[in-house]
């Protein structure tokens, strides 16, 4: 198990290899479908973004509402491919890590290699467990989007697995082949 702290600098990204189990401590930002569209809109209009993309981590999640006194509701990853078309633009701005679940397209992987970034998988559906690692949560933009609002999270020992590393090595493809039984 590897422990890393944010900001996710290039040196840290380079140490992470596909298949590594990692515990993240530090700041990350939540963004999913509608939030990505807003960010891209702001980039196109040359507006200042709600957070600095450089060395940042985005977590693809739309949490359930927090109960009274709780930091956040259940908060597991959503499926990442829906964000693929928006991702290379964010990687160009210095985004270094993404947390989600499921496959990414070729363009995203190429851009990850070019910009030295990493794609982590969190366990989809382990939403109550993952919420327990989130120590603070604050909406910083797009509040009207409800569960899709942009949140700044502080997490401690947040468990993820490196799915695609900065060399483009993809654990989904490698491991599936090992266990496949051809009749």
């Amino acid at each position: 198990m590897i422990k890393i702290e944010t900001p996710l600098t290039i040196d840290k990204v380079k140490c992470l290899k596909a298949g590594d189990e990692v515990l993240i401590t530090g700041t990350m930002y939540t963004l999913r479908d509608a939030g990505h569209m807003r960010v891209i809109e702001q980039i196109n209009k040359d507006e200042k973004l709600p957070f600095d993309m450089k060395n940042s981590i985005i977590y693809y999640v739309g949490p359930s509402p927090a109960k009274l006194g709780a930091v956040i509701g259940s908060a597991g990853p959503t499926t990442s491919y829906r964000m693929d078309e928006f991702t290379p633009a964010l990687l160009e701005l210095g985004l270094k890590g993404m947390i989600g679940k499921g496959a990414r397209n070729k363009e995203v992987i190429q851009s990850m290699v070019k910009n030295t970034a990493v794609y982590f998988g969190a366990v989809g559906g382990a939403a109550a467990l993952l919420a327990s690692c989130i120590k603070s949560s604050e909406i910083i933009a797009y509040e009207d989007l409800g569960p899709e609002a942009l949140r700044k999270l502080y997490v401690e020992d947040f468990p993820v697995i490196v799915v695609i590393d900065s060399l483009g090595k993809n654990i989904y493809e490698i491991e599936k082949e090992k266990y496949k039984i051809v009749e």
Binding site: K67, A70, A126
Partner: peptide
């Protein structure tokens, strides 16, 4: 993790999945 998650969800009365 999934089994632990199910225990946390039912004990703390929160959704299994967001």
């Amino acid at each position: 993790q999934l089994l632990t998650n199910a225990d946390i969800a039912s004990n703390q009365k929160m959704p299994i999945c967001q």
